[in-house]
């Protein structure tokens, strides 16, 4: 067997996918990077190596504000989702009998398959001024006036958390059940209390799964347009919302590109921050 022909045949298999990704992902990305260095003069585009768009990110208050809003929402969503999903995954893994676990998981992620747009809309129904939550609270006499729940950051966070709790429950569950039960047994056997077993053994062993899930949450959350647009209203805008405004209303492609690259920069920083625990290959 000559390595030469082997290699050539291998290239033949890989080439279509490589060409596809290069043509429709890498090249557009490079064009977008170049676009972020261009400027708009009136309605016409001027290519160049300007840093104006990036300077605007820091000089224009509403852009900086959008970055802050996006980060605050994303961090909140990630933390809350992990804190809710971990116990849920734990209960399914250790309290639900084995034969029902698959069903419990399926039930947990079934609403995943409501259309993404529709899911946010459904939360709008739930949280609306006349919606189910206010209706119930009023009927129970817990509140006198309907609460403003929709079109707030609370609504955005709730919509996101709903989505990511499902996702994280799945990844954390997978992590918990693949642990040999003997780890916990060994810890208990050597005198650890339940809490100590969790803190010193189970938590460190599931950390890679948690961090991987949290990173995924971070990436998907910070780049999402639909959920804040439908649920958050226009009181405060996230970065993706600002990007869409630039595209739609003003056709300011250079600024939209710069914002996109900055989003990628934030994701890269998040990646570096948790690279130590990340197991993306395990997804």
């Amino acid at each position: 067997m000559s390595l030469g022909t082997e290699t050539r045949a291998g290239w033949g298999f890989v080439a279509p996918a490589l060409l596809w990704t290069t043509a429709f992902f890498v090249a557009p990305f490079l064009v977008m990077a170049a676009m972020s260095l261009a400027t708009l003069e009136g309605r016409s585009l001027v290519w160049g190596l300007h840093l104006d768009n990036y300077a605007r990110l820091f000089s224009q208050g509403y852009l900086l504000r959008a970055v802050a809003v996006s980060l605050e929402i994303t961090v909140t969503v990630t933390l809350v989702s992990v804190l809710l999903a971990y116990p849920l995954a734990w209960i399914i893994a250790f309290h639900v009998p084995k034969r029902w676990q698959r069903l419990a998981l399926l039930l947990t992620i079934l609403p995943f398959w409501t259309s993404y747009v529709v899911r946010s809309y459904a939360w709008l129904l739930v949280l609306a001024r006349e919606g189910v939550v206010n209706d119930t609270l009023l009927a129970l006499g817990l509140i006198a006036e309907p609460l403003t729940l929709a079109n707030t950051r609370f609504a955005t966070v709730t919509g996101f958390v709903h989505f990511f709790v499902m996702l994280l429950t799945l990844t954390i569950y997978a992590n918990l059940v693949q642990l040999s039960p003997n780890y916990a047994r060994a810890a208990r056997d050597l005198g650890a209390s339940g809490l100590q077993t969790f803190r010193h053994v189970i938590l460190p062993l599931t950390l890679p799964g948690i961090v991987t899930g949290a990173f995924l949450t971070f990436v998907l959350c910070i780049g999402d347009y639909i959920t804040p647009q439908i649920l958050g209203g226009n009181n405060e805008l996230t970065v993706p919302q600002v990007i869409m405004v630039q595209l739609g209303r003003r056709a300011d492609f250079p600024l939209a590109s710069a914002l996109s690259l900055m989003l990628m920069g934030i994701v890269t920083l998040a990646y570096l921050a948790c690279a130590r625990w990340l197991r993306l290959d395990r997804l």
Partner: peptide, 20 residues
């Protein structure tokens, strides 16, 4: 009596060494 409070310890079949 719970495993923690027994004067016994176990060597597990898969060893259950803490990998971290």
């Amino acid at each position: 009596v719970t495993p923690a409070k027994r004067p016994t310890t176990t060597v597990f079949q898969d060893y259950a060494l803490f990998p971290h």
